[in-house]
Simulated scan of single mutants.
Amino acid sequence: MTRENTATNRKTPSSSTGMQQLTSAWLRASGHLANSVLEANRATLAALGLSDGDQSGEVELEPSVESVAYDDSDWTETRTVDASENINPGDTVTFSKTISDEDVRAFAKVSGDTNRLHLDETFAEGTRFGGRIVHGTLVSGLISAALARLPGVTVYLSQDMRFLNPVQIGSRLTAEVEVVEALAEDRFRLSTTVTNADGEAVIEGEAVVLVDSAPDHVE
């Protein structure tokens, strides 16, 4: 499981490799969700708190919130407001998902954070945690996922957070954001919390976001 330092031989791309690249690009452009394309995008999806959620490798393309690009059968979400112009203090949004081993490994690859604490069970057993844990920044990504489910288009301006408890791989987590204060020019201050299945907080913090109305041409 530990990555070895090995030299990679560089080869001149063959014509068949070029054809594969063209084929892959065509598939992406045409919107086909073939397995080859899904595998290429999986790491990016995981970094955003997205996962295929089942063994079929299929991502559902009918999100329950208009501003969100993808949804998944493993995810659950709630919100108390459906229009950006109606956001007020007290409004909340939640987003829940299970952090899988696949999520952790994909995040390590896309982020470059290959700390053995997250990837090597034998190594991690000798640490204070007694085993592998989820990257803290992957856990905090669920806050961003919850913010994406606010109505309109949400833009992060700042985020402060405290990491309170480690997260075991396979844990189901829930991120909740609550509007605390309406600021000038469509800006809002929110409390941000991530809890585990036992209701124990693993992250607490505060964010400031800008919320624009959705573009008029979006159906």
Rank of each mutant, 00 (worst) to 15 (best):
T2K: 10
T2I: 12
R3C: 10
R3G: 15
E4D: 12
E4H: 08
T6E: 15
N9V: 03
R10K: 13
K11V: 11
T12Y: 11
P13W: 06
S14T: 14
S15M: 13
T17S: 14
G18K: 03
Q20K: 14
Q21C: 03
T23L: 05
S24V: 02
S24P: 01
A25D: 09
G31Q: 09
L33W: 10
A34Q: 08
A34W: 10
S36H: 05
S36Q: 07
E39T: 07
A43V: 03
A43D: 13
T44I: 14
L45K: 05
G49L: 13
L50D: 15
G53H: 06
Q55Y: 14
Q55K: 13
S56Y: 00
S56A: 08
V59E: 15
E60Q: 12
E62H: 07
P63C: 08
S67P: 09
S67K: 10
S67H: 11
A69I: 12
Y70E: 10
D71H: 01
D72I: 06
S73I: 03
D74L: 04
E77W: 11
T78M: 10
R79P: 09
T80P: 00
V81S: 06
V81M: 02
V81N: 09
A83D: 12
A83R: 00
S84I: 03
E85A: 01
P89K: 01
D91I: 00
D91N: 03
F95L: 04
S96K: 05
S96L: 01
D101Y: 01
D103M: 01
D103K: 03
A106Y: 06
F107K: 02
V110T: 09
S111F: 04
D113M: 03
N115S: 10
L117D: 10
L117I: 05
L117K: 04
D120T: 02
D120M: 11
E121M: 10
E121Q: 07
E121G: 00
A124K: 02
G126F: 08
G126T: 13
G126D: 06
T127H: 08
T127I: 02
T127Q: 12
F129W: 07
I133W: 05
V134E: 09
H135T: 08
T137S: 15
T137H: 15
G141H: 13
L142S: 04
L142K: 06
I143W: 08
I143A: 02
I143K: 07
S144F: 08
A145G: 05
L147V: 03
T154Q: 10
T154I: 02
V155F: 11
Y156E: 08
S158C: 00
S158Y: 02
D160R: 12
L164A: 09
N165M: 13
Q168F: 14
I169G: 07
G170L: 00
R172M: 06
R172K: 14
A175Q: 07
E176S: 01
V177L: 04
V179R: 04
E181H: 00
L183A: 01
D186H: 11
R189N: 05
L190Q: 05
T192H: 04
T193G: 08
V194L: 06
V194F: 06
V194G: 04
V194C: 04
N196I: 05
D198A: 10
D198C: 04
G199Y: 03
E200K: 07
A201T: 13
A207W: 01
V211S: 04
S213M: 14
